[in-house]
Amino acid sequence: MELFSVPDLPEVRPGDDIAALIAERVSLDPDDVVVIASTIISKAEGRQANLAEFPAGPRAREIAATLEAITGEEKDPRFAQAVLEESTDIVMDAPFLLTETRFGHVGVNAGIDRSNVPDAELLLLPKRPSESAERIHDKLGVPVVVTDTCGRPFRHGQRAVAIGWAGMPASRDWRGESDRDGRELGVTVQCVVDELAGAANLVSGEGDGGTPVTIVRDWEFGDHGGSENLYRSVETDFVRQALRGWSYERN
């Protein structure tokens, strides 16, 4: 397959039509997949905010004080309040805030960004990324994946993952098919939206040289079953269940 960035996209402002910005700059093939960094969707949807909009409550002040004691760095309780308001579940509150967003994604600080926000102090994730992807998909006529960059358990560094998608299943299901030795596969469900997000991030890059939209060309889903499941339920997420009985202790 081939991946390439959409060139010359302007700084996105509230109300901008991202689908139109893409269509003006690239001619899409019917089987293309458009991979979009959530940053520009948040900007177009007016998800910029300032800390003053989040007066800190008692829980936020407690969290900020704990994190400040652990890290030795000053922590603004208003930021903790923003994280709380963007979350439905606090998975960990020390030594960092790990939370579940309203749409099911689990990440540090509810995915709130403090970089690449020229007109505000904070950039919140899109409220419903899959609905955002659906609107862009309806206009472009090709599958759309919305991505964010986050860390992973048990590994150093960050990578892009999918937080929304439309026009294609989230995963392709290999169960019931055979491996090279003829054995039936019983558990393999390949999360293709995450894999496309990671591949696109290699092209889009990070920092001030990053580009927010990547086109994936000549990739095929293939003749497989599909699944829309991406986020584990609490009942099947044994890591989260274990974290609920764990508390951070400083050495």
Rank of each mutant, 00 (worst) to 15 (best):
D138L: 03
E62I: 02
G245Y: 03
F221C: 03
E68C: 02
G205W: 02
A69L: 06
N251H: 11
N116F: 14
R135M: 07
N50Y: 04
R25W: 13
N229P: 02
P143V: 06
E100N: 12
E73C: 11
D16L: 02
P169E: 13
H105V: 11
F96C: 13
T71Q: 09
G198Q: 08
G164H: 01
V26K: 12
S178V: 14
V108E: 14
Q190C: 05
V234Y: 14
N201H: 15
R180L: 15
P77T: 05
L84P: 01
V91T: 06
E74R: 15
V234D: 15
R13D: 03
R232A: 10
D173M: 01
E235A: 09
F54G: 04
Y231L: 10
H105R: 12
S178W: 06
N116P: 08
N251M: 08
E121C: 00
R102G: 15
R152P: 09
A170G: 11
W246T: 08
N109L: 13
I18T: 05
A56D: 14
K127N: 08
R102T: 15
H137W: 05
L3S: 07
T149A: 04
D29V: 01
D32P: 04
P118D: 08
D29L: 06
K127I: 08
R61M: 10
G151K: 08
F154P: 12
K139Q: 10
L84H: 00
D237A: 08
L125S: 07
N116W: 14
V146N: 02
R135E: 15
F54P: 07
V108R: 15
M1K: 12
V142H: 04
D113G: 14
G57F: 02
G176H: 03
M1L: 07
S178A: 14
D237N: 12
V234E: 15
D179Q: 12
E73N: 14
G72S: 12
W246S: 06
A20M: 08
F154R: 04
T101N: 14
E68P: 06
P169S: 08
G164S: 02
R59Y: 10
P7T: 15
P129A: 00
V33W: 15
G46W: 09
S38A: 02
V91A: 10
D17G: 01
P55A: 13
A44T: 09
L125C: 03
F238C: 10
L185V: 11
Q158W: 11
A80Y: 06
L98D: 13
R47D: 00
M92F: 09
G207I: 00
E62T: 08
A65I: 00
L185Q: 03
E206F: 03
L230S: 13
C191M: 04
P169T: 00
R175H: 00
D173A: 00
E11P: 02
F103Q: 12
M92L: 15
D113R: 14
A23Y: 05
G207A: 05
R180H: 13
E85I: 01
D181K: 09
D119I: 01
D218C: 05
P153R: 09
S130T: 04
E2D: 04
G245R: 07
